[in-house]
Design a binder for these strands. Structure first.
Lengths: 256, 256
DNA sequence: CGGGGAATTGAATACGTTCAAAGGCCGTGG
DNA sequence: CCACGGCCTTTGAACGTATTCAATTCCCCG
């Protein structure tokens, strides 16, 4: 397995073997990670606070629901599915997190993680221990300011995902809005290659959307046939974005 | 129309005529609203920062999407529906906000409101002008701390709503999880009367859930017949909460 | 008492789900 | 290098559920 870059900061999207590392500047954690200007010099979080690019093997949990909240994580490379226990299907997929995004932070106020996060592929995360972050924030107002900015942004984005995905009427709407959400988030983290890579299985997507996997499969096949998308296994290209927006019942103007 | 209480702070849920005012301590804005202890005395936000119980008439917008972000609002009494423009149905209901909850704050980081908020009934909101809040926060670290706590809580609750409502398979699941979400939020703001009041029309609920209103109506009738709920117009009692959780596909233990 | 919007009910149709089976892909071992 | 086996994904056909459109009832307000 290839190693993550040794340099302290990733200036542009880079690939080591299979893994795609997000550019640090595009990462949701960047406001914290970036050295802050403090009266009389710089204050660098990387020294002593941030644990960079901790590897998480495919299938391994980053944290489990109910586990004590200990750290904020940003995904540097890879992807995670977020799950809750569920008696009938044994797990309910309640979300996905991709590189450049924060994960688990919504448990901050209540002291435990609100779901389980499982790596979908070989992944790397940057970790800020929560208590240490708070201690530093106590001392460095600029840092607290950045923390605030970061959380506001996350709030906005999770709201955006919610309105994009919630209350879609039929299968076509649900599937296409999922694809659009995926695309928007991929762009945001700075990968502008037209080909998206689905790091999760069909099962997981179907579970998330509340559809049987067969129905999802049929919808994707139909979109393919209609020329809306180009899908081959886990490689996906949105061939007709405008028409896809239309199918999803979303406004034609980019909702980003 | 009855007037809001004249007292500066509402110590317990109170009713003036029709309106139910949430108890200040149960309000999401309370961390900011509550006088903070500062070295050498108290710092009271109510003086000079907070605009209390501004009335909003039924049907009137509190703010519109794309409007410049100017203030954080907490709902003191009443309820709002949150909508986005939509060509086919002319509006897409993307959420509801009830007394004790914040509304619109997710637009903070991007400088504009992310949706339109329309009062469903005569309502009252407490308003904190954003710029003034930031200025104060610059000076009073305790205030900034409380702001942070408040946002973390909101993040958690919006995540909870998301997982409760997202990806429910069939009509029964969607409708029952909506009712459960409603009940949880009503409890949270301190109203423990068994009867919930639906302040929105059936149309709005159906729109939000992505169902035709007829289908929603049928589901409610069926639940009624099965003894899960007791519904009469806009008055609703969840008669068998456990069974309702089960229908929704949610764990029996309270998800709160 | 009458009017009008909202909510419910009914019946035909369209849509999505289920169960069964086949196809494709990938890793392992011969 | 090819064959095998397992898992993931797709396809097929019958069934069940949700949507649609129309009609009726309910309820609030004039």
């Amino acid at each position: 397995m290839s190693q993550p870059p040794a340099s302290p900061c990733i200036k542009k999207p880079c690939h080591t073997g299979e893994e795609k590392f997000v550019q640090c500047e595009r990462c949701a954690l960047f406001p914290l990670c970036d050295p802050v200007e403090v009266s009389g010099g710089q204050f660098n979080l990387i020294e002593g606070l941030l644990e960079r690019r901790v590897p998480v093997a495919a299938g391994a949990p980053l944290f489990a629901e109910e586990e004590e909240f200990r750290a904020i994580y940003a995904i540097s490379a890879g992807a995670f599915k977020l799950t809750l226990p569920d008696e009938r299907s044994n797990e309910k997929v309640c979300g996905f997190s991709f590189s450049g995004e924060l994960v688990g932070y919504s448990g901050m106020a209540v002291g435990h993680y609100p779901y389980r996060a499982i790596a979908l592929e070989q992944s790397y995360v940057c970790e800020i221990p929560y208590q240490r972050l708070m201690d530093y924030a106590e001392k460095v107002p600029e840092l607290r300011n950045n923390l605030f900015t970061m959380l506001s942004m996350e709030t906005f984005h999770s709201h955006l995902s919610f309105t994009t995905l919630m209350g879609r009427k039929n299968v076509d709407q649900r599937v296409s809005s999922f694809l659009i959400n995926l695309e928007q988030r991929t762009r945001r983290r700075g990968f502008d290659h037209p080909t998206l890579t689905l790091s999760m299985r069909r099962d997981d997507i179907a579970n998330f959307l509340g559809l049987p996997k067969e129905t999802l499969s049929r919808a994707l096949s139909k979109f393919q046939q209609q020329g809306l998308i180009n899908i081959d296994g886990r490689r996906l290209v949105l061939a007709d974005y405008q028409q896809l927006l239309n199918t999803a019942g979303l406004p034609a103007a980019k909702t980003e």
